[in-house]
């Protein structure tokens, strides 16, 4: 998968997560803001990193604003953001 554009998915509503992907030339950077960062921060970042790795992406900036999303929500939101970034925009 090749990232082409800045893309966003999700919301900052309760139990959701907003994911932003910015393609760049630098190494992968994941920034997490979360109400439960202390308890689940490491887990969330590991999960996101795994999805990014699976798609063969090494260079990007990922901004996450989590409002207590469960794993499957996080997965869906990250995949959607990746899809939008690689296709060039939202498909809604």
């Amino acid at each position: 998968m090749k990232l082409l554009n800045r893309a966003i998915s999700g919301t900052m509503e309760s139990s959701d997560i907003m994911v932003e992907i910015i393609p760049w030339d630098k190494d992968l950077e994941i920034n997490l803001k979360s109400d439960v960062k202390e308890q689940f921060g490491k887990k969330i970042i590991a999960l996101v990193k795994k999805i990014i790795d699976e798609n063969g992406i090494e260079k990007a900036c990922i901004n996450l604003n989590d409002k207590g999303a469960l794993d499957f929500v996080i997965k869906a939101r990250v995949k959607t953001a990746l899809y939008r970034s690689s296709k060039g925009g939202s498909d809604e």
Partner: peptide
């Protein structure tokens, strides 16, 4: 009730589509 979260999320998404980041 988290309405502000909904609104700001929507504004961000709306402006994002106009390439306003």
């Amino acid at each position: 009730k988290g309405l502000m979260n909904t609104l700001i999320s929507e504004i961000i998404r709306y402006q994002y589509e106009k390439n306003i980041y």
